[in-house]
Design a protein around this nucleic acid. Structure first.
Lengths: 213, 213, 213, 213
DNA sequence: TATGAATGAGCATTCATTCAT
DNA sequence: AATGAATGAATGCTCATTCAT
């Protein structure tokens, strides 16, 4: 009826539905148990699908893994757009603070953390996938920060020698403590919104103290 | 010369030598291939030792893993002592800069990075080991920074609300970029001493801009 | 003819057929070589089935063992019915003699003896299975004798203080010599029908001399 | 100094002591865990002896087993002498009752029962040992009963066609219930002396009812 | 197209026995 | 004579992948 309705497939073929079921099952298992800790039997069972179907859709365990990782970096684009908009800010401190809070909220999500752990774990076995993931997700965000800070420097709002390093500084001033612990402490660690805001605010404070003109 | 020298066994028994060989072999394999990617056969073969000997020394694959991880956090103490000495500094900027350069040099060593990756990878399977490692290695260093910064604040040299967060800031201002990439890019990434010094210096600059009185 | 007949599967599925083949193979091997003396490889090979199929059907070596033992006590019910009928006998001596001959014939079968030896052998490793087997097979028969003798005592045909002990006496007066030897002499010992009849008759004679009113 | 002193070794050589320790350790383990369930490592460890010593003393696991079984049938002779004396009894009922009580007391000992179970369990693997054991222990006792009953028949005190079968009848009239259960119920089953006496007395009663002149 | 079975290899672990020291 | 290590094979079990139905 509407344009949206036309472009969004309302009926998904049996086949596509199964494919999606497999990917969801496998994603959960890989995220929780790692590559070697996940068996194709489990995947098929959890997806309620025969093993043949898995193999017909994905050839290989490796391919299945690759496809899943690449499929799991969808919404990064949304955030980079937000970053890009910061370049035209009228109130740097306020907008940077807001950005920082959104940033830590997104990154600290269990799914994101698990994905990060999984890729770090499998970087040895899948160097290309790990590199790819880095460039699509955390790297892309850092790049967005880099571009943005360069523009703010051009506008005279920041004083920056090495914009890429400044971007890393910004990111890790915000994430350092929770991210470091999250890597080693599984999904147990939970932060309240107030704590996250504290990390964001303190990170921004330090960043501006050093980089504001 | 001294009695201590005499009582210290200069010759290592057959048994101890084999045990060491096994640990070295297993360390290398675990570091390179992960826990599941390493087989006890490989360990025995690389150590040039029979499987029996491996099992008689370590009971279990899990125990072998645990023992190795705990055995790999020996020299952390040396660095924390260096950190502690900073509290009495007469020239904060200079000594902090030196400390930063030592810090990044130690942390960026391939061995350290691999260990970090391994523990992150196995945090799901060995939560206790991962937590333990964190507390013995990166956590202990952060704690040393925390104590030191608190003392410097007491001496009026720094202005700090949350010393633990300041410690995290310091650490990650220095490590952020190389560490982030190292996690995803295997051991390929190599940094020149000059680059490392740049990371250290810039980190210190930002830190002092925000925390110096 | 009936609906039941129609719904009862006359053809056995592939799966069920394999399952049966595995059970038969494993039964033979366990009976001959014991639990520890039987390997899952052997079972699969003898059943002409892949190891996977064995494991998918039985989970475990222990489960396979348990299932086999429980499946091997099928026809005990038939005999206990015969025992029950004796309670209404019109000619005690004759009917008891007949029962005794049937009893020794059933019990002295190689299969029964092997099963008994196997369970005694594994009583330490599988106490629950051994207990279960006892209650389903020899114990159940003794119980049938007990009930029957109680009824005969009520009818005034026997004089019995402890019917359960009388049942044991009856059973072992018949079985004593051949069973004792069978336990230690493997399957070599063979008795002719005449010999078995002699054991039965003499057992009944002694029993009646002591218990008949 | 005395003859006793000379023939009885008062000092046992290191070697003999170790040999004894090994036999004791192995006996316990075989009895508890069976032949396959016992490893030579365990034996050596429990005997506090090196594996070499075990092998130097016993060549083989099989030999060790054989030696132990044969060494475990020492005191059977004592009982057969008691049986032999019954032949000259002046009060058959009383003396037979006493004998029965001694008999069940000896046979129902945990050690004896374990030995019996072990031999039954390993009859398939060690036919010769099982046969040998049977002839030295339960068989020898049955033979003693056989001889004794024959003599009593000759004296006109019993009326017996088949003395060997009568001996079996006697033995199992006494043992039937406790032995049958003991075979399947491990060492848990415990009988009070009163219960054992009941078994003995009832067995004797039935026996005499059938065999006394 | 989807299911059950097969393949063939691998892994952690244990064992009986023998060698070297 | 005794210990630690080695050998070499086996065992229970799992896995990724492929056939056959």
């Amino acid at each position: 009826m509407t344009d949206v309705a036309r472009t969004t497939p309302q009926v998904e073929g049996r086949s596509a539905r199964k494919r999606r079921a497999i990917m969801e099952a496998a994603t959960g298992l890989f995220l929780r148990n790692g590559y070697q800790g996940t068996s194709m039997d489990e995947v098929a069972a959890l997806a309620a699908v025969s093993k043949q179907t898995v193999y017909k859709n994905f050839t290989d365990k490796e391919q299945l893994f690759r496809d899943i990782i690449l499929g799991a970096t969808d919404r990064v684009g949304e955030f980079t757009e937000v970053v890009a908009q910061l370049a035209g800010t009228e109130d740097l401190e306020k907008d940077l603070g807001e950005l920082a809070r959104r940033y830590i909220t997104v990154v600290i999500q269990p799914r994101t953390l698990q994905l990060r752990r999984l890729l770090i774990a499998e970087a040895g076995r899948f160097p290309a996938v790990a590199r790819d993931y880095y460039q699509r997700a955390p790297g892309r965000t850092i790049d967005a920060f880099t571009d943005c800070f360069q523009k703010l420097a051009d506008r005279g709002l920041l004083r920056i020698d090495d914009p890429s390093l400044a971007a890393s500084h910004f990111a890790w001033l915000i994430l350092s403590q929770p991210m470091d612990k999250a890597m080693f402490f599984g999904d147990e660690q939970q932060y309240t919104p107030a704590e996250l805001q504290h990390f964001a605010d303190e990170g921004v404070r330090v960043f501006l103290a050093a980089y504001r003109t």
